[in-house]
Design a protein around this nucleic acid. Sequence first.
RNA 1: GGGGAGAUUCCCGAGUGGUCAAAGGGAACUGACUGUAAAUCUGUCGGCGAAGCCUUCGGAGGUUCAAAUCCUCCUCUCCCCA
Length: 421
Amino acid sequence: MQTHTKFLPVKEQISRLKDGVAPVEIIDMEGLTQKLEQSRSENRPLRVKQGFDASAPDLHIGHSVSIWKLKTFQELGHKVVFLIGDFTGMVGDPSGKSKTRPRLTREEVEVNAQTYRDQVYKILDPEMTEVRFNSEWHGQRNIYEFLELTSHYTIRRMLERDDFWKRFQAEKPISIMEFLYPLIQAYDSVALKADIELGGTDQKFNLVLTRHIQRAYGQDPQVLLLMPLLCGTGGKEKMSKSLGNAIGITDSPDDIYGKIMSIPDDMIREYYLMCSGIENREIDNILSQNDPYQAKHKLANTIVSKYYDENKARCAAQQFLSLFKNKDLPSPAELIEDNAAVRIDNEVEWLPRIIVTAGGAKSNAEANRLIKAGAVSIDCVKVQAEGKNLDIRIEAPFILKVGKRRFYLIYRNEEQLKQLC
RNA sequence: GGGGAGAUUCCCGAGUGGUCAAAGGGAACUGACUGUAAAUCUGUCGGCGAAGCCUUCGGAGGUUCAAAUCCUCCUCUCCCCA
C-alpha cells in the first residue's frame, strides 16, 4: 500500500485547470474539490470523460479547446475517457434538423474511431486515454432497463431545454426519440462511472441532466466543465465541419494559415484566447497595436506551430504571402505535394470536364458558370472563351486556377511530371 | 376518436392548371474594391458539351393537349376538441 499520493495538492490542480482557456462554467465547484481530494487520498486517478460523435470523426480547432483541457487533466495524472457515440450515432440525430442518419456499420465505426485516435493523439497521451464506444452497454440493454432509465426524468423538465422549448412554442415537431436521446447519452456517464465531464456550452442541458441520472443510479454526480464554443471562420455560426467553416487539426499548414487569415476581425480576440495558448496579457498587448492584419499573421503562425512546428509555420506564411499578396502561383512541386496534380488522359479535353475531374466543380454546368464568371484561369491567364470553344490541348502541364484558392496542376502523363520535379 | 391547417429547390418562404427550373430573403459561390477581414457593388445558384432536351415541388396512382397547382389513396407534421 502506498502511503503518499502522486497527485498534486488540490489547490494547485485547480489553478492548473483554470490556466489557459478557462471553462465558461464549472458546475459544482465544491464537488470538484471533493473529488480531487478523494482522488488524492485514495491515490486514484479521476475519470474525465468527453463524448464525440461517431459519424463525423473530424476534429477541428474548436474541439481542441476542450481536448487541451483534457490534456491538462492527464498532466495532473488523471485518466481521460474518450467516448465515441457509435450507438447514439446509429440511432439518429437529436438536433431536429436532419432525418435519421444512415446507420453506421461496425467497420465504418472502427475506421472513424481510428481517425479519431490519429487526430486526438496529436494532443493526448495514448497511455492515459481510454477509448470507449457506447454501443458496449446500450447495444444489449433490454426494454425494462430502458424504461427504468426513462422513469427518472419528466417531460416538463425536458421541455426546459431551450431548443425544445422554442420548437414547442413555434409548433415545430419534436420526436419522442429526441427526448430519449439525452437520457441515453446521460447513461454513458453512469456506465463509465465518470467523475468529470467536459463539453461545449451547448451541451449544458444534457450534461446537467446526466448528473440527475447518475444520482438516480446511486452514483456521485459528475462535475461539469463547460467549455466555450469557437465560432467558425465565417464568424457567425459555431465551428462545424458540416457548415464548412472549420479548421481541422489535420488540415495542411497552408490551409490552417489561410483559414486563420480569413476570419473576420472581430473574431481575432476570441481565436487568440481559445486557440493560441498565449497569455491574456500578451494577447492584450498584441491587439493593442490595432493592426488586425499583423495580429492574424501572428495568430496563424502560433497555431500552425502548435500542430506542426515553427518551420512549417514559416513556410506557410511565405506561401501565403506569395500566393495572396504577390498573387504568385504555387509551384508545380507544391501542387504535387498537396495532391493537387490531376492527370487527364485525352490529348484534347473540354475545360469544364477538366475542372470537374480536378474537383473544382461538382458538375459541368457549375464549371461553365465559373468560367463565365471569370473565375477560371490557366497559367495566370483568365479564360474568356465560352461553351463550345473550351477544348484544351494539353501539350505541357499547366496550372489551373478555380476561384480564389483552388489550384490544380493538370498533366497528361507521368513523364511530364518527372520533368517538373 | 372528431374537426381544421400543412409538406415547395441547401434553409426560410411565395406560387392554386400553361407565361414555372419555380418570386423574395438567407446561406453559399464568383468578379471588383481590399488586409484571402468587414462594408459596398456585379453575377451565379437542378442536370445534359451552345440550341434544344431531361429530372425536380412529401410518396404512389389518376384527370388533362398541359399538373407544384385538380382528383384518389398513402406517409409525415402542427393546432383545436375528446
